Simulated assay, not measured.
Amino acid sequence: MTPQELKDLAERYRRDGFVHARGLIPHEDIAALAPAVDMAVARRKGHDTRGLDEKTPYEQSFIQCQYIWEDFPDVRGLTFHPRLGEALGALLGAEKVRLWHDQALYKESGGRETEAHQDHAYWPIAEPDTITAWIPLIPVDEVTGCMGYVPGSHEADLEFVDIFRAEGQGEALLARQAAEPVFCPAQPGDVLFHAGRTVHMAKANHSDHMRRVYTAIYFKDGCTRGGERAHPSVDRDRIPQGARIAGGATPVVWPLVDGRIPEPEPWPESQDERFLRNRASGVIPGR
């Protein structure tokens, strides 16, 4: 993108809390990298033979696989794509950008809506300088489950919405918003960016095929840990409360030193119940 295009993109992002960057990643790159994401999801979730109606409401919203760049190296070209990194730096106004974590969010045919929520409420990051890149691997529209964003909601209060265990809380959050959500059909190569505090949701998948989407969360270098809420992106590097978040679990994605993509660090062993459950289910690496 030209400097003026990046400036315009950043202005819209800062005004609305989200922005649709059309054709940011070359189509041929998406075509080459999408099979790696498909492979990651297939291998992580290959043991799960449950039908959609046997899953929890949260699992009915999407199949979730996190940190796939770490155990599936062919995904890294997307996570650390230079055009993506350049845009992240402009939108965050950052000289250096770090990865919080990536994830595949595949919505099955018949999958329910993703309820309205604000991502930042789930992360122990003190500063608001967080951003998600939502990258469709197929055309996505209101039938397959496109994203919706509430303009300006990134400037409002941050609320924790328990989309994991309770149905309907997202509707209550949405009812308190000052604006209606804007839904954004998108094509492969497009990237939808939204701030960690932006209220967002996704429609149900009424199509006959899987909605395949890769996402990654990034943050401005210099952000610090806020609170003791557990999260692998800080716990793996033993980041204490108030300390700068920097380590092998949160590598720099832009600018890359000499253009080299970093290698992931090993995951420590743990007997934590949630950790073991997420590993067994394929949400995190190591199954």
Rank of each mutant, 00 (worst) to 15 (best):
A186N: 11
H154M: 09
V199M: 04
S153D: 07
H154N: 10
I163N: 03
G168V: 03
A156L: 12
P185S: 01
F183N: 01
V182S: 02
A175C: 10
A175Q: 08
Q169I: 10
Q177M: 15
E180Q: 09
M201E: 14
A166F: 15
F193D: 10
I163T: 10
S153T: 08
V140R: 04
D162L: 14
T198C: 04
P188T: 02
A156Q: 07
A166G: 13
V140D: 05
A178G: 13
E180G: 09
F183L: 04
D157F: 14
A179D: 06
P181R: 03
A179H: 13
M147P: 10
E180N: 08
G170Y: 11
H200N: 04
V150G: 01
V143C: 11
F193Y: 04
G145T: 13
V199C: 04
E180H: 07
Q169H: 11
D190G: 01
G152R: 11
C146M: 08
R197Y: 08
L174C: 00
V150R: 09
A175V: 06
H194S: 00
E142S: 15
P188H: 14
V143E: 13
H194I: 02
R165T: 15
Q177W: 06
F160K: 09
R197S: 11
D190E: 02
P151K: 06
A202N: 02
E180P: 09
R165G: 15
A179Y: 05
A178R: 06
E155N: 15
Q169F: 15
P188Y: 06
A156Y: 02
D141Q: 03
A178Q: 08
E180I: 00
R176W: 12
G170W: 13
C146L: 07
Y149G: 05
E171C: 00
A175M: 09
I163L: 11
P181N: 00
G145F: 12
V199E: 06
H194Y: 01
A179E: 10
D157C: 15
T144Q: 11
A178D: 15
I163G: 03
A178H: 10
A195L: 06
R165C: 15
Q169V: 08
G145V: 13
E142R: 14
A178K: 10
H194W: 04
A156H: 07
E167W: 10
T144C: 02
M147K: 08
Y149A: 11
A175F: 05
F183R: 03
V182F: 02
P188E: 07
L192R: 05
E180D: 15
I163H: 08
